[in-house]
Each structure stands twice: as structure tokens, then as C-alpha cells.
Simulated assay, not measured.
Amino acid sequence: MLKLNIKNETSRLRAVVLGTAESNGPTPKVEDCYDPKSIEHVLAGTYPKEADMVKEMEVVATVFKKYEVEVYRPKVIKDCNQIFSRDIAFVIEDKMIRANILPNREEEVHAIDYIWNQVAEENRIILPEACHVEGGDVMPWNDYIFIGTYSGADYPDYITARTNTNAVTAIKELFPNKMVKAFELRKSNTNPKENALHLDCCFQPIGTNKAILHKNGFLVESEYEWLLNFFGKDNVFEITKDEMYHMNSNVFSISEEVIISEQNFTRLNTWLRQQGFTVEEVPYAEIAKQEGLLRCSTLPLIRD
């Protein structure tokens, strides 16, 4: 049996699911892409190659090994993109919640059935069909659960809108002892620089009291201001539109002191080191072309 435990984003990691780029399938057609950044690279002929992505993910696996983190991988499905394990499920406290994701990604969910089946039955949660949610939008932060959402009437028109208000309500009911705080995200099917696919594309807490934040990812300025005040201006690293596009907020914490980051994030990595963090730099620029990075490709199961 797996004894799940996730209370926040940064406590010392003990077990994680790392996605896989093996048998990723051919370059998708434009109409089969789920996000504007992938479309951009398909059209430009720069869509990432499987071999390059496999290499990038193996570097991350090596970092986990160095810190003695137990690494699970999804069962490989032929010709299926299984990099972004954060999308398919998420853990809060001792519960694993299965995400209701885009219908054509159902297979991905079953690739981690062998992990799901090791969780006590009462802790396996499948939300009602009307609740759409992906793990990239859900952040447990001690007494809080932060959730990215989109409540516009045009929600169905956005393939980039992944978490609806029904899911926010359902999570509130599941965790009555937590303060659930929802944030409206900016969505665009066509412009990756104007699209916050998930909350972790424009915000992520790090350490014990710091955060990375991008103002334009939030539709409601007062919600962005709330986060700024919650962490305190001096503790927040504000990223630019370009840095958001390159996924600077999508790093991943192994502990309150150690962060895995992309090697090209020069400005961010310099700041992190100035703040006293150990930064494990990895090459992840190919995977980033699909509008996801380190947090997106990891699903933490156990933290201290």
C-alpha cells in the first residue's frame, strides 16, 4: 500500500511519478494539438523529437536518484504523449484524485493504474463527470488549496480551459478543513503568450514563503494582488511575458531548499541562488515546446 502524503508544494519529496517520453508518437496534426504553443512548433517544423525528450527526462530522473526519491513511471502506451503526468491525477493529503481530462487522453490515466491500485480504496477519488480538473491547476499550500480556473460562459470554446468551477466546489467539499482559493486565468487558444494553460504556468510557491508570479496570467487583478500580498513583494519573483512563455514558473521543488530548474532560466536561477536555494539545472527546452515543464511532468505522491 502507498501511504500518500502531500500537504504543500515544497516539503522534502520521497516518491513521485515522472512522465515518460517513450513511444511519444509522430508529430501531431495542428487540429490534434491541445495548446497554442504546440501548434506554433508544429507549424514551424520545430516540434520536439522523441529521442531529445527522452534524454531530457532521464536527466531529471538522475536528479531524483541523487536525492534518493523513489521514481514511478507510467506504463508506456504506444504512440501516446505521456510526458505530463501532473495532468492525469493529483494528491492532496492522503487522497489521490483522478483528473477528468480531455476525453482523448483517457488512456494516459490508465497508464498509472498500477499506482492507483496501491492506494487505499477510500482515498481514491473520482470526481463527478461535470467536474473538469487537471493537476497543473491545483496547488496544496498548507492550510490553503490554490486552484486555477476559468468561469467564463465561453469555457467550452477554450481547449485551454482545463479546470471548471464545478471542480473547485467539489474540492472544497472534499477538504472542508482547507481554505480553497480559486484564481481566474487568462485563456487563449491561439496566442501562447496570452495563455495561462494552468495555474502553474503563471504562479508557483517555493521554499517556505516565496513565490514565482506572472501578473498577466491572471484575469482579475485583485486575485494577483492577493497572492502578492500573501507572500509579500520582497519574496516574489515576477516573471515577464517571455519568461512565462518559456515556462519559468514551472520549476519543481525537491525540498524547501532544492529546486529543479531549466538551465536557460538565467535570471530566475540567479535569483534563486541569491535567495539561498540549491538549483539543479537540467535541459528541458524541448519539452517546454508543448507548453509544459518540470512541474507538469511530475506527480508527487509522498513528501515528508
Rank of each mutant, 00 (worst) to 15 (best):
E184Y: 05
D113C: 08
D113I: 09
I147A: 04
D137T: 03
M139C: 11
E9T: 12
V258M: 10
E243Q: 14
E93C: 08
W141N: 01
Q290C: 13
Y72T: 04
I83A: 11
H246Q: 13
D79I: 03
W141S: 01
M1L: 14
I125L: 06
L127C: 04
I97L: 04
E93Y: 07
T62I: 14
Y284W: 10
F218Q: 00
E93D: 14
K289G: 01
K95P: 02
D94L: 05
W271A: 07
E122W: 08
Q275E: 11
G148D: 01
L18P: 03
N123K: 14
N191W: 08
H214V: 04
N195D: 11
G276N: 06
E22F: 15
V76D: 09
I287S: 07
D87S: 09
V63M: 13
E281G: 03
I145M: 02
E129Q: 11
D32N: 13
S85D: 08
F237S: 05
R124A: 07
Q204R: 13
E31F: 10
K37Q: 12
G276A: 07
D154I: 04
M139Y: 04
E70G: 11
T10D: 13
E50R: 06
M179L: 15
E256T: 13
T165I: 14
F237C: 10
A288N: 11
I88P: 06
N24P: 04
A15N: 09
H214T: 06
I39Y: 00
V76W: 09
G19P: 06
I97D: 01
N269S: 04
N216R: 14
I159Q: 03
W226C: 00
R86V: 03
S253P: 05
N24C: 11
F84R: 02
A21K: 08
E194A: 07
V54Q: 10
L268P: 09
T46K: 09
K95E: 00
F218A: 00
M1T: 15
N81Q: 10
K75D: 13
Y47F: 15
N209F: 03
P26D: 11
K75Y: 15
K187S: 02
L2D: 12
I126Q: 10
C201K: 00
S85W: 08
C296V: 01
M53Q: 13
K75Q: 15
M1G: 15
Y150G: 01
L185E: 00
K215G: 02
A153Y: 12
R86S: 08
Y284V: 10
V258R: 14
D154V: 09
I88A: 08
V138K: 04
M247T: 06
Q275G: 05
K233T: 12
C201R: 00
V133F: 00
N189V: 03
F237R: 05
N5F: 11
M139A: 09
E184C: 01
L197E: 01
H110A: 11
D79W: 05
A161S: 10
E108W: 03
V30P: 09
P283Y: 08
I77Q: 09
D52Y: 12
D52V: 09
G135S: 05
Q290P: 09
K95N: 04
G148S: 02
M53R: 06
R73D: 03
E108S: 09
G152L: 00
E107A: 11
G232M: 05
V54A: 03
L197R: 00
I239M: 10
